[in-house]
C-alpha cells in the first residue's frame, strides 16, 4: 500500500533522511524507531505531503506523494509531532472544523465527530475549550482529529510523548484498537512502546534505515551471543565459581553482576547457537557448588537498538 523508494531529504546541507526504501502492507502497524534526530519526523512529513523529498519517490495507495498529493491527503490521517490544536476552539467545534476541511459531507459531519469522540473517549470534554485540557486529553483530541474521516492510513508522530504513564497506557491501547482495521505508522524513540504496539519495526539512525523486521525476528537475527544468568554460591571448595563457569566450552565471558551474603549472580555470554544451561548445571553441581537459579535471557529490543545503532557508527 505504501511504497518508498530511495527517499532523501536535505535541510540546506544537512541530510535528515538518506536513501530510505521500504514498503508497508495494508492493515499493518509499522513503527519507526530511532533516537532523536534519526529522521522519523522528516520521513512522516514527506509521507503526509507537508515536505517534498529532495530525491526519491513514494506512493501511497498508488498515488505519488508529489503529483497526486490531494488524493494522498484525502485518505490519510496525521498527528504531527507538535500537536495541531487550535487552543481557542472547543473540542467538538474543532473536530467538526477538521471534518469539514477533510471533505466529510455536511450530513455526515456530526456522526463522524461522534464516532471519533467515542473512539478517543472525549465525551466528557466535548464542550470544553482545547486550551484548558490536560496534555493527555489534548493528545487524544489530536488523534481524534486524525481519524475523523475514517482514513485508511493513520500516521502518528510520537503519539505518547510528554504524557504521564497512565496516559501513555491509554493512548497505546487506543492505537492498538485503531490498528485493528487500518494501516498505522507511528514513530517513537521508546522501545517497549514499539514492541507492544507494532507488528513491524523500522529502525532509523542518522536518516538511514538500519533494520526492518518484526520485533521477534529482529531479536532473533541480531542476537550476537546468548546471555545466561546463574545464581550460585560464591565458591565451591577451593575453586572460584567464576573460574568454573569460565572453563565451560563455548563460554566467551563471565561477569559477576550481584553478590549477596553467600551467593553471587553471574552473567555468562556464549555463542548464540548453543544453550549451555544443562552443562552449567552439571558442572556446578559436580564441583559441589550449590545452584540457586539458572535462566537464559532474551535480548531486549533495547539491546538490539543500541547494538544496531553503535554498529552503524563503527
Amino acid at each position: 500500500m505504501i511504497q518508498v523508494e530511495d527517499l532523501s531529504k536535505f535541510y540546506g546541507s544537512v541530510q535528515a533522511v538518506s536513501g530510505l526504501s521500504f514498503e508497508v502492507k495494508k492493515g499493518e502497524v509499522l513503527g519507526f524507531l530511532g533516537p532523536n534526530g534519526a529522521g522519523k519526523t522528516t520521513t512522516m512529513k514527506m509521507l503526509t505531503c507537508y515536505l517534498p523529498p529532495s530525491s526519491g519517490r513514494a506512493t501511497i495507495f498508488g498515488f505519488d506523494i508529489m503529483k497526486d498529493s490531494m488524493e494522498v491527503r484525502k485518505r490519510t490521517g496525521y498527528l504531527p509531532e507538535k500537536s495541531p490544536l487550535y487552543t481557542d476552539m472547543r473540542v467538538g467545534e474543532y473536530l467538526a472544523f477538521v471534518a469539514r476541511l477533510r471533505g466529510v459531507p455536511g450530513d455526515r459531519i456530526s456522526s463522524s465527530v461522534e464516532m471519533s469522540v467515542e473512539a478517543c473517549g472525549l465525551g466528557s470534554v466535548f464542550v470544553k475549550s482545547i486550551g484548558h485540557l490536560s496534555k493527555g486529553f489534548q493528545q487524544r483530541v489530536g488523534i481524534a482529529q486524525a481519524i475523523i474521516h475514517d482514513p485508511e492510513l493513520l500516521i502518528l508522530d510520537e503519539p505518547t510523548i510528554g504524557l504521564d504513564p497512565k496516559q501513555i497506557i491509554d493512548i497505546r491501547r487506543l492505537i492498538t484498537n485503531l490498528g485493528k482495521d487500518r494501516t498505522v505508522i507511528l514513530s517513537s524513540h521508546i522501545l517497549p512502546e514499539v514492541n507492544q504496539v507494532c507488528g513491524r519495526v523500522i529502525i532509523l539512525d542518522k536518516g538511514r534505515l538500519v533494520a526492518v523486521d518484526t520485533p521477534d525476528n529482529l531479536r532473533e537475527k541480531l542476537r550476537k551471543f546468548r546471555v545466561t544468568f546463574v545464581t550460585a554460591a560464591s565458591s565451591g571448595g577451593n575453586v572460584g565459581t567464576q573460574d568454573i563457569l569460565g572453563g565451560i566450552g563455548g563460554v566467551t565471558g563471565v561477569r559477576e553482576t550481584a553478590r549477596e551474603k553467600d551467593a553471587s549472580t553471574f552473567r555468562i555470554e556464549s555463542a548464540p547457537d548453543r544453550d549451555l544451561r544443562n552443562e552449567i548445571a552439571v558442572r556446578l553441581v559436580s564441583a559441589g557448588v550449590p545452584l540457586f537459579e539458572l535462566r537464559s535471557e532474551e535480548m531486549s529490543l533495547e539491546d538490539i537498538f543500541i547494538q544496531l545503532v553503535t554498529e552503524e557508527k563503527n
Partner: peptide, 9 residues
C-alpha cells in the same frame, strides 16, 4: 496548526 492545515486536502 500550520502543518495540519497544509496536510489537509
Amino acid at each position: 496548526t500550520f502543518e495540519l492545515l497544509l496536510t489537509l486536502p
